[in-house]
Design a protein around this nucleic acid. Structure first.
Lengths: 215, 215
DNA sequence: AAATGTGAAGTTGTTCACAGCT
DNA sequence: AGCTGTGAACAACTTCACATTT
């Protein structure tokens, strides 16, 4: 069943970067709201987010018209529309696979919970509980991964396994119903079209910096 | 002193994405080398890196001509040229500022050392040593930051402080000689032109995924 | 014959300029 | 008058096609 092309803008037509910037706008708006600011112009919000104002306006109009000419945007309304769009209105369950150094590190990181994501369980070939008070999630054996994902309707997974295992683990997860990966393994994952992979590689990020810093 | 524009390709003319892909190519080449493969075609290497072959060739020719027509690229030579270029031939000192959850997590992560970076020290307003066996770096008080950076000629910093403090800390670091930041704080840093900032926000990365996964 | 290097074409994303609301 | 929404111009990046070299 090939998708029909239409003139209407659909998910696929929206630049990935636009979606990314939405998250940034959302954080800036949150700050404004905390300071009791009710309305903001594209100029001001763009400044806070580090982009130019036409960029911001174009980004928003991919999704509709939210501003009032001569006035600006309603802060609260914009926040609502962005979180609806990103799916962060409700807490989302996430599993983490691979409890090595990085995996443990991410499990103890409290930054996800604040943004609407809940790492509900971790999995590793060695299902030993982490003896760290800051890690509260249960660590299960790999053999339980599929069943857990299916039963809890988990759609997103954080992959921190060694590169050799990444492809196999992701295959299992996809079969169990996962459609989004945050992949920390330095591997190019082969996945079906409907599955999204966000590769994150901290070492590459540093290397990149190193180039611009010079030596 | 405005920079003179020239026809020759200089650092600024090279797409950021190209530099980023260089790191990916490097990792693929490393694997080839480990498997005893001496020569590789753009087609094969591009496949492994998840890009198209003209992309790879164009990326490389920004820096010179490294291939042999009819044959391909010499694996070892390419690795050498990329690491020279990225500045990862020699171990580089990095400081980490802000030893909260994420900071601690990154300190215990061994992935940087393998790629040529050495987190030599950490700094925090509360200079308490981390009682975690996996964290081996000393944690100093913020007041010692400037002197340490100057004396050890540190050029790169990993910022994990709360957003309110990020700007001030980065000002200090820039004055002390840091020209590259890996910024984990959800803030748009204002820095001089010659300073590079790589923003990394794991929560945004997850939010982004959430959008594509749907709900 | 095989595979690189590259100008030109194509695609995607950004910025501008201004028409059109409020 | 002020500020959004948007088509058109612009810039950046990617892909193609093929001439060139080994």
């Amino acid at each position: 069943m090939p998708a029909k092309k239409s003139a209407k803008i659909e998910k696929a037509d929206i630049p990935r970067k636009t979606v990314y910037r939405l998250s940034i706008y959302s954080r800036c708006l949150q700050r404004l709201l905390e300071n009791g600011i009710k309305t903001v112009s594209s100029e001001a919000l763009a400044g806070a987010a580090g982009v130019k104002s036409p960029q911001l306006r174009k980004d928003l109009t991919y999704f509709g018209q939210f501003g009032t000419r001569g006035l600006g945007y309603d802060v609260e309304q914009l926040i609502k529309m962005i979180s609806d769009l990103l799916g962060t209105t409700h807490l989302q369950p996430v599993v983490l696979v691979g409890v090595g150094n990085l995996g443990r590190a991410l499990l103890s990181y409290r930054g996800f919970a604040k943004e609407g994501f809940d790492i509900v369980a971790a999995f590793d070939v060695r299902a030993v509980q982490v003896e760290d008070m800051r890690v509260t999630q249960p660590v299960y054996s790999m053999t339980e991964l599929r069943q857990f994902v299916e039963q809890n309707l988990v759609r997103m997974a954080i992959l921190c396994v060694p590169p050799e295992e990444a492809q196999e683990v992701s295959n299992d997860l996809v079969e169990a119903g996962v459609t989004g990966f945050m992949n920390f393994a330095p591997t190019v994952l082969q996945v079906p079209d409907e599955v999204t992979v966000n590769n994150v590689n901290l070492a590459i990020e540093l290397e990149n910096l190193s180039y611009f810093v010079g030596h």
